[in-house]
């Protein structure tokens, strides 16, 4: 079919647990997307990744049909793992809650490279470092 694109957007959702409530309903509803079909399909595809945040990049076509692909977990999730922090352990306070090495940072940047829209590895690493610092994770080495 001649699938002409109307809009693309990304939802970062808990794997296997998407519901029609916001942000899904508020993001997809105005575009006339079959929300239940999306959540059902997303939950099936991510059921084995429970506990992670798995982004879905959704393409909405001009006739309000749609498709989606799964992306790599957010940098924050990968940073928590690298720093040995619990899920949800991040705090907005300015104290250091964990550490990652520069090598770990570059590994995460390599994993995320295709999804970050960064021009090169240095730009990708800078994005990841910004996220790390905002989470209270110090970059060492």
């Amino acid at each position: 079919m001649a699938k002409k694109i109307r809009i693309i957007l990304t939802l970062q959702l808990p794997a296997g647990k998407a519901t029609p409530a916001p942000p899904v309903g508020t993001a997809l509803g105005p575009h006339g997307i079959n929300i239940v079909e999306f959540t059902k399909s997303y939950n099936e595809k991510t059921a084995d990744k429970a506990g992670q945040i798995i982004p879905a990049e959704i393409t909405v076509f001009e006739d309000r049909s749609f498709s989606f692909i799964l992306k790599t977990p957010p940098a924050a999730d990968l940073l928590r793992k690298a720093a040995g922090l619990d899920k949800g352990g991040a705090t907005p306070k300015r104290e250091t809650v964990g550490k990652v090495t520069r090598d770990q940072l570059r590994e995460i940047a390599a994993v995320k490279m295709s999804d970050l829209n960064a021009n090169d590895m240095d730009a990708a690493a800078r994005q990841i470092e910004g996220t790390a610092r905002s989470m209270g994770i110090e970059v060492v080495g």
Partner: peptide, 18 residues
Amino acid sequence: EAVSEILSRFAPGGTSVQ
């Protein structure tokens, strides 16, 4: 990525990025 991480601290249902 960093902004999403901050907002997701308060909104456990997830974030949308347009």
